[in-house]
Simulated assay, not measured.
Amino acid sequence: MTNATAEKPLHSVSVAGIVVREDGRVLAIRRADNGAWEPPGGILERDERPEEGVLREVAEETGIAVEVEQLTGVYKNLTLGVIALVFRCRPVGGVEQLSEESTAVRWLTPGEAEDAMKEVFAVRVADALDGEAPHVRSHDGVRLLAA
Rank of each mutant, 00 (worst) to 15 (best):
residue 14 S to I: 03
residue 15 V to Y: 04
residue 15 V to R: 08
residue 18 I to N: 01
residue 19 V to P: 06
residue 19 V to T: 10
residue 20 V to Q: 09
residue 21 R to I: 05
residue 21 R to F: 03
residue 21 R to D: 05
residue 22 E to I: 07
residue 22 E to N: 11
residue 23 D to T: 10
residue 24 G to A: 09
residue 25 R to K: 15
residue 25 R to I: 02
residue 26 V to R: 07
residue 27 L to C: 07
residue 29 I to N: 07
residue 30 R to G: 03
residue 30 R to T: 09
residue 31 R to T: 06
residue 33 D to A: 00
residue 33 D to F: 09
residue 33 D to Y: 09
residue 33 D to P: 05
residue 33 D to I: 00
residue 34 N to G: 05
residue 35 G to I: 10
residue 36 A to T: 06
residue 37 W to F: 15
residue 38 E to V: 05
residue 38 E to G: 01
residue 41 G to S: 09
residue 41 G to R: 08
residue 42 G to F: 04
residue 42 G to N: 11
residue 44 L to Y: 00
residue 45 E to G: 11
residue 45 E to H: 12
residue 45 E to P: 02
residue 46 R to I: 14
residue 47 D to I: 03
residue 47 D to N: 13
residue 48 E to L: 04
residue 48 E to D: 13
residue 48 E to P: 11
residue 50 P to W: 08
residue 51 E to Q: 14
residue 53 G to L: 04
residue 53 G to F: 00
residue 53 G to K: 00
residue 55 L to F: 05
residue 55 L to V: 12
residue 56 R to Q: 06
residue 56 R to S: 05
residue 56 R to I: 02
residue 57 E to K: 14
residue 57 E to D: 12
residue 58 V to Q: 08
residue 59 A to F: 14
residue 60 E to K: 14
residue 61 E to Y: 02
residue 61 E to D: 10
residue 62 T to E: 10
residue 62 T to D: 10
residue 62 T to W: 12
residue 64 I to E: 02
residue 64 I to W: 07
residue 66 V to L: 11
residue 67 E to A: 15
residue 67 E to G: 15
residue 67 E to P: 12
residue 67 E to N: 14
residue 67 E to F: 09
residue 68 V to P: 07
residue 68 V to L: 04
residue 68 V to Q: 04
